[in-house]
Structures are given as C-alpha cells and as structure tokens.
C-alpha cells in the first residue's frame, strides 16, 4: 500500500519533470524557428521593388547592416570597406553575395536617395527601407540595436546610434556570421574563410 503510493508519487513527479523538461527544451527552439521564418519573410522596399531574405536563391547570401541615408560617417566608412573587400572576392562569390543596407530611419530617409547611395560604393550594393515594425523585426532577429537620439544643439537635430555589425545570412534568415570591423582586409579574410568552408 505504502509502496504503491510511493511508486505513484514518484512516477507522477517523474512524469511532471519530463513534461516540464520537454516544454523547456523544445519551446525556445520552436519559437526561434518561427522567428527566423518571419524574419526571412520581412518585406521591405528596394530600388527595384519589394525585397525579402526569403527571395534569395538557396545558394545566395546576404550581408546586411543597419544604417541611414543621412548617416554622415560610419555608413560611408562601412560601405567603403565593404566595397573594397567585395571587389577582391572571386567573381563567383560576388555573384552569391548581396550587400544590403537596411535603413533604420525609414520615416526621415528619402527612399529614392537612400536606394541610390550604396551603389556609389559598388554597383551591386543595395539599400532597403520599409515600415518601422518590419525593420525592427529584422533588427531584433539579428540582435542589433538602434536608437534615435535628439541632438538639439547640433545642426543635425538628431542622430541614430546603431550597431555597427555586418550580418551574413541567407534565404532562411539564418545568422551565419556577424562581423564587426572597420578593416576591409579583415572583412575579406573572414568572408573568404566562410565561403571556403561552404560547399
């Protein structure tokens, strides 16, 4: 009697633990997969129409970063380093790699001017913009940050603090590689190493 009750209690506890464990292990994974899928489907505008990671070919990659058109120094610096690194990639890798600047200032950026900006650094580079909610979804997915800061004493009026990272991803919005660098040699080496390991 006592023994069977003990068994019952023990097995109940074990079962409860198992259920808890299962939830604990699988729920974050499932949520992450769902988030990844929705990040891939975030739809933004580019110079030639709508853009989303999901529309990349399976063998294609995107190297995305966050910026804004009136970003006076960091964005052109990033684009200049990217341009130099990209030009030194083998042509077949260039064809598989899309460099995309995502505007975190979609309300104040002039989109047509924004779209025309990255191609000044390499003809294949593009900029995308969209609804703030959509942009924020991508920002969160790549664990990047930005914030608009009022600068009342500056002629700028405001600035946007933003993560300087470059995020290598694909049509599934997988976070394959995060690069933080202001050195084109380093970027080139990292990209070559990554692609060297790919089939």
């Amino acid at each position: 009697m006592t023994m069977s009750r003990l068994l019952l209690i023990t097995s109940t506890i074990l079962l409860a633990l198992l259920v808890a464990n299962t939830l604990w292990i699988f729920r974050p994974g499932q949520i992450a997969a769902a988030k990844q899928a929705s990040a891939a489907e975030v739809e933004l505008e580019s110079a030639i129409g709508s853009w989303q990671l999901a529309s990349l070919e399976p063998e294609q990659y995107a190297l995305i970063f966050f910026g804004y058109h009136r970003c006076p120094d960091i964005c052109p610096l990033t684009l200049a380093h990217l341009g130099r690194a990209y030009q030194q990639l083998p042509i077949d890798l260039q064809d598989r790699l899309q460099v995309v600047m995502v505007s975190v200032d979609p309300r104040l950026d002039d989109w047509q001017e924004l779209f025309a900006y990255p191609p000044l650094f390499h003809p294949s580079f593009k900029a995308v913009a969209g609804e703030t909610e959509q942009v924020d979804q991508l920002v969160a997915h790549f664990e990047a940050f930005y914030r608009v800061v009022d600068l009342p004493s500056s002629g700028l009026g405001y600035a946007i603090d933003h993560s300087p990272g470059l995020y290598l991803t694909n049509h599934r919005a997988e976070r394959l590689l995060t690069l933080v660098s202001d050195d084109s040699h380093y970027l080139l080496t990292e990209l070559k190493t990554f692609f060297g390991d790919q089939p």
């Binding site: 006076p72 914030r147 800061v149 700028l156 603090d161 993560s163």
Partner: peptide, 17 residues
C-alpha cells in the same frame, strides 16, 4: 552648420556626438 564631432562605441552601438 560646421561642427566638431567624435564617435564612440557605447552599449554596443556606434554613437556620434
């Protein structure tokens, strides 16, 4: 406007002031 600025990395974000 002509201003003197600097960049610094704060909280993982590049900020210009």
């Amino acid at each position: 406007f002509n201003e003197v600025h600097t960049h610094s990395m704060v909280d993982g974000m590049m900020q210009m002031r």
